[in-house]
Amino acid sequence: MEFFLISLLNGVTYGLLLFMLSSGLTLIFSMMGVLNFAHASFYMLGAYFAYQISTYLGFGAALLVAPLVVGALGAVVERYGLRKAHRFGHVAELLFTFGLAFLVEEIVHLVWGKSSVDYKIPEYFDGTLFTLFSTSFPIYKGFMMLVSVGMLVALYLLLTRTRIGLIIQAALSKPDMVQALGHDVPKIFMLVFGGGTALAGLAGVIGGNAFITEPGMAAAVGSIVFVVVVVGGMGSLAGAFVASLLIGCIQTFSVGITFSVTDLAALFGVRLEDSSAVARLTVTQLAPVLPYLLMVAILIFRPRGLMGARES
């Protein structure tokens, strides 16, 4: 029971962080059709900026400023890079973000070095929020959840209660129609791209010190974020939310489950004497493959994703 509850809390915390990362990507992907390979790089930049700002002004300032800086940078990238690549079609756009991801990692090497930086959780968050049975739940994880949920609510209000939100929503499902109605779609694209990268930056600010801030952190989450977007479905923030939580929980729970094919067979009364490598695999070992398996299965059997509005 204790294990279950703690794992659930860990899974939800991680899932919420994933959602913060993927919500921006979903918006960008659905509206602009761009698979933004550099999205996780903005997450990394968020963490590094927050580290730099917090050494001078403290964590509070970093939490506010770093996402804005990242968002502004994202908008600039869209305006002066992506839009140019857009003329050459989707492949060029995609390759542009691919190259950008590459370059960002190198810039991080250049500015902050190749090892991890010492981006720490501020001291006032160092402690225990509550103790469940005997396991303590750190304040910082609670704070992460709070920020994630706060962002979720803000995003929801923005999309459903404001004019720009309604236009974005319309553009999610019918981009051509929105353009036909006379809205400045390129400007909306720039806004969405900037907003999406800002969210990734925010995820970096709170994820960077919870885990570790290093040049490899973008690559580590990069493909998982794609999984979330694909599984959740095109144009569906709700889908991305469900998929994030699902994948967060899969990854957390699978660590604790030492159940193998051999055990499964044993349940049915079959004893596998000559346990081959496949039969001995436990769920723990399978954990890294599960998200991708899910993604491929979804792409083949339900290309619109869990809650997608359209196929592509």
């Binding site: 204790e2 294990f3 703690i6 794992s7 860990n10 991680y14 005997s134 396991t135 919870a210 885990f211 570790i212 952190m217 580590a220 990854q251 957390t252 729970f253 660590v255 604790g256 723990t284 890294p288």
Partner: peptide, 21 residues
């Protein structure tokens, strides 16, 4: 007894939960 991928695990909380359990 647990083996985790080298250099790739960033969050050990699930493993600690297991050790505790």
């Amino acid at each position: 007894e647990d083996l985790h991928p080298i250099g790739r695990t960033k969050d050990f909380a699930p493993y600690i939960a297991k050790i505790k359990a």
